[in-house]
């Protein structure tokens, strides 16, 4: 893992936090293109801080973030989507005051290729049939599962290369979580989407991930093939406590 910088996303020695005390201590991470990486770990491990730093909402105090070999240092948040990075934040970020259709169109407004933005919108409506029936409904009228679809769909309209997802399973019924995870796997297999997934729901996340990244107290304590973490009881016990 340490030698090759050949991932779509490469993070080296990343230090970031709020105020003086860093939350992330020298985080290293490599996510190869077309794979799913699941970042797991206890509350307060720095998982959300990692995503917020990757998408530019939080400025790192040291370290490098490379997307497809390009250094993202200092890129304003609103430019990152143009570099192919989509971040679905904690709580999903559905704008309740806007309609489903407006939320989705917002995801494609930055795109120069208007025709393809339109095609992407149609595809999302095909992918998430319930959204198509609720186009004119406001975001705050949707169920948790529908919000999940809306947030994912809105990110997909930008046709991202890298999708950052913060706790997609939070507050969702197990059935909906399973559907979401299956969809992520399908997107990886069909479109080559790269996903960095932060999850408390370790079993679900490792169930679809190629790579498991265990964080604790702001450090990456181990990076393993997801199947290994999932199936090896000793490893699981040592790093994840169950």
């Amino acid at each position: 893992m340490s030698a090759g910088d050949d991932g779509l996303l490469v993070v080296r020695d990343l230090v970031a936090g709020y105020g003086a005390a860093p939350v992330l201590h020298a985080v290293d991470l490599t996510v190869p293109a077309g794979t799913i990486a699941a970042v797991v770990g206890a509350n307060g491990a720095g998982k959300t801080t990692l995503l917020r730093t990757l998408s530019g909402m939080l400025r790192p105090s040291a370290g490098r973030i490379l997307l497809d070999g390009e250094d993202l240092g200092g890129t304003p948040v609103e430019q990152l989507v143009r570099r192919g990075m989509a971040h679905v934040p904690e709580g999903r970020g559905v704008i309740g005051e806007l309609t489903v259709d407006e939320n989705l169109r917002l995801g494609g407004l930055w795109r120069r290729d208007r025709a393809d933005a339109g095609r992407a919108l149609d595809e999302v409506y095909q992918l998430f049939e319930p959204l198509a029936r609720r186009r004119r409904h406001h975001g705050h009228q949707l169920s948790g599962g529908e919000r999940q679809m809306l947030a994912l769909g809105r990110a997909l309209i930008g046709r991202p290369r890298l999708l950052l997802l913060d706790e997609p399973s939070l507050g969702l019924a197990p059935r909906v979580v399973a559907r979401t995870m299956a969809l992520l796997r399908q997107l990886r297999d069909d479109t080559g989407l790269t996903v960095l997934l932060v999850e408390q729901n370790v079993r679900s996340a490792l169930g679809i991930a190629d790579q498991g990244v265990v964080m604790s107290l702001g450090r990456v304590v181990t990076t393993r093939p997801a199947a290994e973490l999932r199936d090896d009881a000793d490893l699981r016990h040592a790093y994840l406590g169950f």
């Binding site: 998408s55 304003p76 989507v81 970020g93 005051e97 407004l109």
Partner: peptide
């Protein structure tokens, strides 16, 4: 209009709007 949608989004949810490429 697109600019109107951007303005509303930026007002309601500045952080999410920036993630979606809106110049808030």
């Amino acid at each position: 209009t697109a600019v109107g949608l951007r303005m509303r989004a930026a007002a309601f949810a500045p952080e999410v709007s920036r993630l979606l490429g809106v110049n808030v």
